[in-house]
Design a protein around this nucleic acid. Sequence first.
RNA 1: GGGCGCAUAGCUCAGUUGGUUAGAGCGCUUCUCUUACACAGAAGAGGUCAGGGGUUCGAGUCCCUUUGCGCCCACCA
Length: 893
Amino acid sequence: MTKHELPKAYDFKSTESRVYALWETGGYFKPWNDPSRKGFDPTVKPFVISIPPPNVTGELHLGHAMFVSVEDLMIRYHRMKGIPTLWVPGSDHAGIATQLMVERHLLRTEEVTREELGREEFIKRTWDWKRKYGGMITNQIRRLGASCDWDRERFTLDDGLSRAVREAFVRLYEKGLIYRGPRLINWSPGLKTAVSDLEVEYNEEEATLYYFKYMLKDSQEFIPVATIRPETILGDTAVAVHPDDDRYKKYVGKLVIMPMLGREIPVIADDYVSREFGTGALKITPGHDPNDYAIAQRHNLPVISLLDEAAKINENGGPYQGQDRFECREKLWSDMKKAGLVIKEEKYLTTVPRSQRGGEIVEPMISTQWFVKIEPLAKAALQAVRDGRIKIVPERFEKVYYNWLDNIKDWCISRQLWWGHRIPVWYCENSHMTVTREDPSECATCHSKNIHQDDDVLDTWFSSGLWPFSTLGWPDETPDYKYFYPTSYLETGYDILFFWVARMVMDGLEFTGQAPFHTVYLHGLIRDEHGQKMSKTKGNVIDPLTVMDELGTDALRFTLLVGATPGNDMNLSVKKVEANRNFANKIWNAGRFVINAIDSLPSESAMGDPTLADSWIWTKTQQLLRDVDRLFQTFQYGEAGRQIYEFFWSDFADWYVEIAKEQMQNDGMKKQTVITLARILDMSLRLLHPFTPFVTEELWGHLRRTLLDSPISNIASDWPEALIIAKWPEAHEPEEREESALQDFGKIQEIVRSIRNARAENHVKPSIRFKFKLVSDEDFDLLQRNSYAITCSTGTYPPEIVKRLDSKPVDHIGLVSGSTEIYLPLADMVDKSDEKSRLEKELKEAEAQIERLAQLLAGDFAKKAPASVVDKEREKLAGFKETAEKLRAQWKA
RNA sequence: GGGCGCAUAGCUCAGUUGGUUAGAGCGCUUCUCUUACACAGAAGAGGUCAGGGGUUCGAGUCCCUUUGCGCCCACCA
């Protein structure tokens, strides 16, 4: 028999590299993935997740660690249940982010700009970059233990997905759901591209509110107007007042003179204007403000574009042409001051639109862009959640989802970038448009060969929206697509519910006619230990790679899984991870103990009947299995992890293993003890596996090898099913036996705790062993059978057990635990008065409980509450009464 | 302006069909290097579950309300 030498402390580094290598070489995740696999059952519905594709430029952060942990848990759980699983990995080309990064990279290394290289060359360089560094993020995700189907890795710009994007675009276009035209959009001057409404963030910032005069034509009168962006005065085409505003009514229909440029513009009346706010008069800049744009439409006002693509003033700004928007703001204002048109300036708190990516202030501008007519898609997407085809966890996000889709606006999908899916539209010299799936060689209308493709690319999220089916082969009816689509869960952070989830639902319904998944599970965001957002400037960022290096991947995963509730943000601290590193070590050492126990079991050992401790831990395990399954099915992964943790550490390691040590000293109990240890460890490892895959994989391998060497037969199955305890025959029915095992063992635990407590309170050194007495009529047999458990857990010599005592033994102190009296020979070590006051205190407590319960049972409770609940309280009362009686007897003695 | 979340032990948080002495981790106090583990074991202190009202035999849990913090959405110059 070979000894399995395992290191004393859990060495997660070597374990992780070893286990990782095992997964890499062993085809560990393969078995269920392939429909062509032998023995494959096509009638079993597979469990499928599409990974939220991280940006190729990304570096692993806690958000990634979070989704990988949760999704990997979901996948491993289903895989262990024997359900075919597929977890499609991949990454996103991330238009803006990647383009910016590569631009910066090229500038640094080769000192060339994007423009100098030209479009074609730049894209080539970007692909080079992608090939070189794009694998970084996926490797980091692998390191987290992500059991993805890596042979199916996809990239949003690869050929198949690009085809899907074209297909989607053309279909929408042909259906009239995509159109092109000049509209007011959000323009990012830094990036020189349009961005969608979602990509604009509004921050409250302190700004200046500028008050000035709009002079009436041929008059000394003026209308006071306030603005935050004085430079937009140059683009004004009206001044609006409320129709019922007595102050300004008289001016409606007259003309006012635009400052500096001297253009004459009308005063109009519109009830959009609020009389209370500012001066009650509103300048109208249709070219650069969405509200003004709407008003201009109502009143047939001209629209003036004032800014170029870099947000510099264009030819419409007269003398200010060529100035930056902020520069112009100052210049114009100081000119107006000189001209006596200024009234005042005021500090003002307002919401400033900033680009999510670049951070600069976004300008609303009129621009010709491509849009998706979103309403029909949104309606279908709303319906899918309303009628339950898609369920969102936690449920409250359904409201958020409804609210967004109810108020959704057309989606601007064109971007003035180079890196991305180029819009599949060609123009000829006669301004015909050709929209096709395949690159055309001539104009579809006039057959001109002189055509060129639209310069713009599509919003990255356009391709992400197709992800659940484009990764499976759509638009082709591939075997994968037919078998694995629609997917099962969609798991991601709630922050991209709109960006991604809603769009996938819309696209899925539109293009495949099915909801792309039936459940959306949203996790929260990770903050620092005091709930602050992590940011580089605050210096509170926790790097998952560092944490994995220092404390292990399992510890990080367990922390993320157990510390979080769906949809709620979680505060993470390294201390929590440390605690879970300790847990991994606990698993390791308990495993080590069991493996050594199996090793040391002589082959000729005979099987005995289970002890109370055996039955108890077995029962606890069964309960745990049932609870964990229930919790998993209701997405309460954190609670499940917590319960497994509790069970493993407290019940198994602290109690059962300690008693098992004693049982193994007894030849008659040895075999069943070792078997119980092995079985409980085995089940624990399986339950823990989705949380902490590395340590469990490693230990399970050792366990299995040890078992093969040992006289115990092999263990094998996947996710443990709750078994009926009656497999070990005893007189009672299973449920009753479970109850009695729990109750009886509880009594033993109580006695042990009483003795330990007495030892600690009286400072009896652990090295001192003593005999003691147990007195109980009711539990005499129980105590006799299990006294060894008490002895070994309290560092004592075996007790003398009797049914009753005539008088309190001399030199002993008395304790009461339920119906059992305990006498410890410690009287000479204890202060008599302390002893008295202790008894008194305990008696008082018992009496208080008796009083409370008596009152409870005397009231309506006994009549109206269910019998089982009432009975429980009655039993408690009886217990306290007995305890009190025994305490009183000791008090007297 | 709408919507949502949170408020439980010193700190960070669990507590999902309401069941009657409210849990964990860290921190704190006291003991122990007992042959799986000091990344440990044992014992212990610590909470009127934010305030108020209601439903109920029974509320941390359900309803209303107040206060404080946070988030999301929204076009008020």
